[in-house]
């Protein structure tokens, strides 16, 4: 499957929706507080974040600047987001996802490589699933394998907290919690894919240690 190019009208609609609907709503309901470095504004670049909620993508869309938003493509599971035609159209054209096959594909990252070659900014959740609320699991190796082809492309680690409390996996009830976002220093691939994955996890660990995160169980 070749990389999907969103149509220009949908891309304009996405910009309008994010700026006039999503961002004000996120600001009023979730009250994001953000610390740390800046987010990428030009591509190619990769944003790597922990994943606990559908709101993670919504939050990243509303945090980016105009030029960053224009280039952002969240990497998401094909089996989940393409499961019916309406959801598929919305996911591909408005959210702008790059669908990947979680199982049974010989080269699931082909579209991601093509997107980086074309200068998009990828939003990557290396845990591969939302998982348990506010619990971070080990990163899968995909991000390392992807970045060994792009040794100079910056990878920005982002820690998201609170969204998994507001809307965890499998829940329909939304509860307002303040969300905290910590942006780490951009890093690049260094020789072995494994090291990059570890470095990203360590950066998220140290970002976690800097925030006050109340008990949640």
């Amino acid at each position: 499957m070749a990389l999907h190019q969103p149509n220009p009208f949908a891309w304009w609609l996405r910009k309008v929706l994010v700026r006039w609907l999503v961002r004000p709503l996120v600001w009023i309901v979730l009250g994001p507080s953000r610390v740390g470095a800046g987010l990428p504004e030009t591509g190619p670049a990769v944003i790597v974040a922990n994943h606990n909620s559908h709101l993670d993508t919504v939050m990243m869309l509303s945090l980016l600047t105009r030029s960053g938003l224009k280039r952002l493509r969240p990497v998401a599971a094909a089996d989940y987001f393409l499961r019916n035609r309406i959801l598929a159209w919305f996911s591909l054209n408005i959210v702008g996802i790059i669908p990947i096959q979680r199982a049974g594909s010989s080269d699931p990252l082909a579209d991601c490589r093509e997107a980086l070659e074309k200068g998009w900014i990828l939003l990557f959740f290396p845990e591969g699933t939302r998982g348990e609320p506010e619990q971070r699991t080990r990163f899968k190796s995909g991000i390392g394998r992807l970045m060994q082809h792009f040794v100079n492309v910056p990878v920005v680690p982002v820690l998201l907290h609170g969204l998994g409390k507001s809307l965890p996996k499998g829940e329909r009830v939304f509860v307002p919690f303040r969300s905290q976002i910590a942006v780490g220093q951009a890093m690049t691939f260094n020789q072995k894919g494994e090291t990059l994955t570890q470095a990203l996890e360590q950066e998220l660990d140290s970002l976690t240690a800097q925030l006050y995160l109340p008990q949640w169980d």
Binding site: K165, P176, F177, W216
Partner: peptide, 8 residues
């Protein structure tokens, strides 16, 4: 609510 310990 975001500061205090809460239960799922």
């Amino acid at each position: 609510i975001s500061l205090i310990p809460t239960r799922k």
